[in-house]
């Protein structure tokens, strides 16, 4: 008898956990995706490729909010920096490839140079942001921290965009493709090499990111800081170092996404506006500070975008998700995956 009631008690929250709005939306989304991908497989390919990159953007945004309580408005500008790095690193590599078309190492691995450098530069900018801005503000006052840091990043964002405008002009500059090879056949669907690599890089980076947060000593320390700063300090974790790492990682990921996606979104000073908006859609949809939810949400938003663009028109891509988010927030103000426990990687 007692064991029976015990299992019942365990089952009630389990049922409530899985039979709710969140899972309903996920099931509907999965069903929609299956139907659509039978009709038009390229939509699925695009959803997975862009969704992966939005996941990197949104994951970084959620991480910075979870650990440092900073709602970053400058995240999209790191995406822009990423496209710039890719542009300047890959253009000479491209001409080298043209000069030596038989150098396979260069041809296949050359494009990654820009991506790696973008990550590094993004990380450096992140560390500088912590040193020059957030540490200074933290020293002066932690009152109204969330709003103040939001405004700080908004000011920084205008500076980034307009300095880029002054330095590189307003015209789009891009790379039509990284790998000049014919499309590859994946389960009967021809997929461009760039799309495939975008997807693989996204999945690989997300896997490393997840493992880092869950298993490594430093990743665990980051999560600890996001859950309880005092507790983390008791364990001997220095907050400053964790803050620096958090910003480095988050900004690096945003720049990486920009570098990888340049074939789709060429550099302009405001190229980051749309990824920033998407990352925020995702983060609000998933619940602030929840990295795991943000990754799932990114694919959801990517799907909504692809479907909107395909069935309605590209102009509506930014309008429709707002409607969906308003609906979700009406019913679940804390977001789809938001929970009472404050942390960056909920279990």
């Amino acid at each position: 008898m007692t064991t029976a009631t015990a299992t019942n008690l365990k089952q009630v929250p389990l049922l409530r956990r899985y039979l709710n709005l969140t899972s309903a939306i996920l099931v509907v989304a999965a069903a929609a995706m299956i139907v659509v991908s039978i009709q038009n497989p390229s939509l699925l390919v695009n959803t997975l490729a862009t969704g992966g990159m939005w996941a990197l953007m949104a994951g970084g945004l959620a991480l910075v909010f979870g650990v440092m309580n900073i709602p970053s408005f400058v995240h999209g500008d790191l995406f822009m920096v990423g496209t710039l790095v890719a542009l300047f690193v890959f253009t000479p590599i491209q001409s080298m490839i043209q000069d030596a078309p038989n150098d396979f190492v260069l041809k296949w691995l050359g494009p990654f140079a820009g991506m790696i450098l973008a990550f590094i530069l993004g990380a450096v900018i992140g560390v500088l942001m912590e040193l020059l801005l957030f540490r200074q503000l933290r020293r002066r006052s932690r009152e109204q921290w969330v709003m103040n840091t939001f405004l700080l990043t908004a000011g920084l964002s205008i500076m980034f965009e307009n300095v880029a405008m002054m330095a590189f002009g307003n015209l789009p500059q891009g790379i039509s493709r990284y790998w000049d090879v014919p499309p590859i056949d994946v389960l009967g669907v021809p997929v461009a090499m760039d799309r495939l690599v975008t997807f693989i890089v996204a999945m690989g980076t997300l896997a490393v990111f997840a493992l880092f947060l869950q298993r490594s000593r430093t990743g665990r320390a980051m999560r600890a800081v996001s859950m309880d700063e005092t507790g983390a300090q008791m364990a001997g974790i220095g907050l400053t170092r964790i803050y620096q790492l958090t910003l480095a990682l988050s900004c690096g990921l945003a720049a990486l996404a920009g570098a990888v996606l340049i074939w789709l979104t060429p550099f302009t000073p405001t190229v980051g506006a749309s990824p920033l908006l998407i990352a925020w859609y995702v983060v609000i949809l998933a619940g602030l500070g929840n990295v795991q939810g943000a990754v799932v949400g990114a694919f959801l938003v990517a799907m909504v975008q692809q479907l909107t663009g395909y069935y309605l028109a590209l102009n509506w891509v930014d309008v429709l998700p707002t409607g969906i988010i308003i609906l979700v927030l009406l019913f679940k103000p804390s977001g789809l995956f938001g929970s009472e426990v404050k942390g960056v990687w909920e279990q």
Binding site: L133, G155, L156, I158, M159, N162, V163, M166
Partner: peptide, 12 residues
């Protein structure tokens, strides 16, 4: 674009 850079800097 310069004036917007100045706005941003002043805001910061």
């Amino acid at each position: 674009a310069l004036y917007l850079v100045i706005y941003g800097l002043l805001l910061i």
